[in-house]
């Protein structure tokens, strides 16, 4: 923990001393992801000040403005994010933008950094450097998991993690959006609105019949759905869904794809998945990660025909 703080201080220091480094976003070394955002204005007017520090300040102001422009309408904005574990770069200068209301599929071979990316977005892991913004201007690197979850980013894990000692209903009840104070929970009363909400979610996730079952006794697919139900209960702006159909039957996979499309009507969703059939069934824009950075992006057909992608998937 202290490491990351030190790291952060060091980064800030570096940002101070070399403003035209990673502080200027899409002009950085990984422009691939930043197509939709224009920033020609910054490049257009070189600024020379008689005083070096004034130059620094000016550059930083411009950089900030550029960022603000770039981020304004995004829901999730990752820029130049890097994270390494013991020298291994799990995420390497990753830049990724999700628009509001978008549903995005992320594919990539094992070790491409998908899970680490999720960890960074949800606050479990702090990046070594780079920016992570939510809803335009919330810097996610400054918040912990609980705060990020409360802001409206929900996450479903690769391995379904539900509260096995609780019933399906209680799992959802604990996840319902609402105050998160401890003493509030102590004096909490179940009310009509809460029951209705739970009812809706149970129906959406096809778990109504199992509402009193302990989560431990659910089948694998049901646990996946329960976890998605818990996500819905949080009513998040953005859902991060990690391999939702791993280990599912074809029928279940179909059903899950339908469920996700349904959800995507009211939420932004990022799905990480291996299963190409499933991704095709989703029918959304696809980003392919490789070795911690974006390899290709576009429709599934475009991505799957990209020679770089073909090389990564087939070439080894």
């Amino acid at each position: 923990m202290s490491d990351s703080i030190i790291q952060k201080v060091a980064d800030e220091f570096r940002a101070l001393s070399e403003p035209q480094g990673n502080a200027r976003p899409p002009a950085g070394p990984a422009p691939a992801a930043a197509e939709p955002v224009g920033n020609g204005a910054v490049h257009g007017e070189p600024f020379v000040s008689p005083h070096p520090y004034a130059t620094v300040l000016h550059d930083r102001r411009l950089a900030a403005e550029a960022q603000g422009l770039a981020r304004r309408d995004t829901l999730l904005y990752l820029n130049g994010v890097t994270k390494s574990f013991d020298g291994f770069k799990a995420i390497n200068n990753l830049s990724l933008v999700i628009q509001k209301g978008e549903m995005r599929a992320i594919i990539g071979p094992n070790g491409a950094g998908k899970t680490t990316m999720m960890d960074i977005i949800t606050g479990k892991t702090r990046p070594d450097k780079g920016e992570v913004f939510f809803a335009g201007d919330v810097d996610l690197t400054h918040h912990d998991e609980a705060a990020i979850a409360s802001m409206g980013i929900g996450r479903k894990f690769q391995k379904p993690t539900v509260f096995e000692s609780h019933t399906v209903e209680d799992n959802i009840r604990l996840s319902l959006a609402g105050p998160r104070s401890v003493l509030g929970a102590l004096v909490h009363r179940k009310d009509r609105a809460e029951r209705d909400r739970i009812e809706t979610i149970l129906e959406t996730t096809r778990l109504t019949a199992r509402r009193k079952t302990y989560a431990a006794n659910l089948s694998h697919g049901q646990k996946q759905w329960l976890e998605i139900g818990m996500l819905l209960a949080q009513d998040p702006e953005l859902l991060l869904v990690d391999e939702p159909v791993a280990g599912m039957t074809d029928a279940e996979t179909e059903e899950t794809a339908r469920l996700l499309r349904e959800i995507a009507q009211h939420h932004s969703v990022v799905v990480v998945e291996h299963d190409m059939h499933f991704v095709r069934a989703l029918g959304v824009k696809v980003t392919c990660l490789h070795e911690g950075s974006v390899l290709s992006e576009g429709t599934l057909d475009k991505v799957s025909n990209d020679p770089k992608v073909i090389e990564v998937y087939l070439g080894r």
Partner: peptide, 17 residues
């Protein structure tokens, strides 16, 4: 408190925070 996993903590992304 400062280093919840001791002086020479095992590192890596699989260590649960």
């Amino acid at each position: 408190q400062k280093r919840p996993r001791g002086l020479f903590a095992q590192k890596g992304r699989f260590v649960e925070a």
